[in-house]
Design a protein around this nucleic acid. Structure first.
Length: 407
RNA sequence: GCGCAGGUGGCGGAGCGGUCAAUCGCAUGUGACUGUAAAUCACACGCCCUAGUGGCUACGGGGGUUCGAAUCCCUCCCUGCGCA
């Protein structure tokens, strides 16, 4: 099991080191998303250039893409993808939401404007009329039952149960794996969340049982993290935190949905029952404003698609704010993307106008460069956060535009 | 000079009598992206405004036919290819 050592703390903020079979992770830190094993579009050389500290891959996608037998055969994901950094795998629990209620509700996991919604039987419906609701059709691709989840994906059916997810994650062999849970929609009401969180708790027990059963010696070092759910509801979050926190997991994830404005208090509830000395991972969160809230609440790990996805979409991160490099004003901008940045792109003096040009006319190359830069931006941000020892005001000034939701 | 083929919004390129301010693509603009349905998506893109089944000006210029023309006819100008 991954050993976690807290080095410094200040209030709830802490820095630490998480030891894994593939090296130490300095915390707080963020896992770059590598769904299918590697970062989208990256080849071996790109991965090397990125100097990754931690990545997270996805059990569901590796499963449906039939990669797991290959991975198992060669002896685990590190041998299969050639990465040297610690790797986590998500259990597939997020796809229960993103391919299910996420599609039905047409929303992501973090809801922007809480006030637009009111309570109803199962979901908190948008206030602007029932016509809209009828469009909440049955285009969900998942069926959730006590036993597990059946996904209808590319015209085929795939089943994940807690046991199956754990078995697959053992086959994949990442350093840190997650319990199979149900991520609910931010539009789900208390009643639905109660039902879901209780089921997730039963699944957590089943995951642990399967994890302990026939643990192969080679994979003994794998660490299983449990996941706290409960939506935006205080009683559910606290109960979930207490229950999941009482189980012998190697660490804990905070999952599920939030309203943008409730991040701080929901996190407080979700962390309230967890043992302090264990690592806490805030699943899927990665806006700077949320990261700052998270580390102040005592989150050690994050993962998020933002650095890579937004890079591919032409949004480049620099301390003064995001820049949409595709905009015409950058066509003549001969400045470096960020003169203080240590990424491969900036070190090779690739200018903003050049990056823009690649993104327009040599898209793949441009997207790779943009990703290299954004990954470095996040790596550097977390290094600064660790270096701050919890005194965040300087950083909050530096990243003012992000924290004020500007740009 | 003759013979073809053409001239449409910032560009490319549809439309070939009415439902056309004009399909579509590009460019541009604005916005989105939070355990990757995302190398993506949405909206705008002639001018005016009280922003609408609103007004105005428009498919090289001019004239004509018609209830009605980007679409048909005449004429002029321009471009490409072929022939002299």
């Amino acid at each position: 099991m991954a050993e976690f050592e807290i080095k410094n703390s200040r209030g709830k903020f802490r820095t630490g080191v998480l030891k894994t079979p593939h090296g130490k992770i300095e915390t707080p830190n963020l896992a770059i998303v590598a769904t299918n094993g590697g970062i989208k579009l990256f080849d071996k050389t790109d991965h090397r250039k990125a100097k990754l500290e931690l990545t997270i891959s996805n059990t569901f996608h590796l499963f449906v893409n039939k990669k797991i037998p290959e991975i198992k055969k060669v002896g685990g994901i590190h041998k299969w993808n050639g990465l040297k950094n610690p790797i986590m795998t998500d259990s597939g629990g997020f796809q229960v939401f993103s391919l299910g209620w996420g599609k039905t509700h047409g929303t992501g996991k973090v809801l922007e404007n809480e006030k637009l919604f009111h309570q109803s039987k199962e979901v908190r419906l948008p206030k602007f009329g029932k016509e809209q609701i009828s469009s909440l059709t049955l285009n969900s691709q998942v069926k959730i039952s006590e036993n597990g989840v059946v996904f209808e994906y590319s015209d085929k059916k795939y089943e994940l149960t807690p046991e199956k997810s754990i078995r697959l994650q053992k086959d994949i062999g990442a350093d840190i794996i997650f319990a199979f849970d149900e991520c609910t929609s931010p539009l789900h009401n208390h009643a639905y969340n109660k039902k879901a969180v209780e089921r997730t708790h039963r699944w957590a027990v089943r995951c642990l049982k399967e994890f302990k059963r026939a643990q192969s010696s080679a994979l003994n070092a794998q660490s299983l993290f449990g996941i706290v759910q409960g939506g935006i509801y205080r009683d559910l979050r606290e109960k979930s935190s207490k229950f999941i926190g009482s189980l012998p997991f190697g660490g804990f994830g905070i999952g599920g949905s939030f309203g943008e404005k409730q991040m701080r208090e929901v996190l407080g509830w979700a962390l309230s029952g967890l043992p302090n000395h264990m690592p806490r991972h805030l699943l899927g969160i990665g806006k700077l404003s949320d990261i700052f809230i998270g580390v102040k609440q005592g989150i050690d790990l994050f993962d998020c698609v933002i650095p890579t996805r937004e890079a591919r979409h032409g949004r480049i991160y620099v301390p003064s704010g995001k820049i949409d490099i595709g905009k015409e004003i950058f066509s003549k901008d001969k400045k470096l993307i960020d003169k203080n940045c240590d990424c491969w792109v900036c070190k090779n003096k690739i200018k903003r106008c050049e990056l823009r040009e690649y993104l327009k006319n040599d898209k793949l190359k441009g997207q790779k460069l943009a990703m290299l830069h954004n990954i470095e931006f996040y790596k550097n941000l977390f290094a600064e956060i660790r270096g701050s020892a919890g005194k965040m005001d300087k950083l909050e000034k530096k990243y003012y535009n992000y924290l004020k939701g500007r740009n």
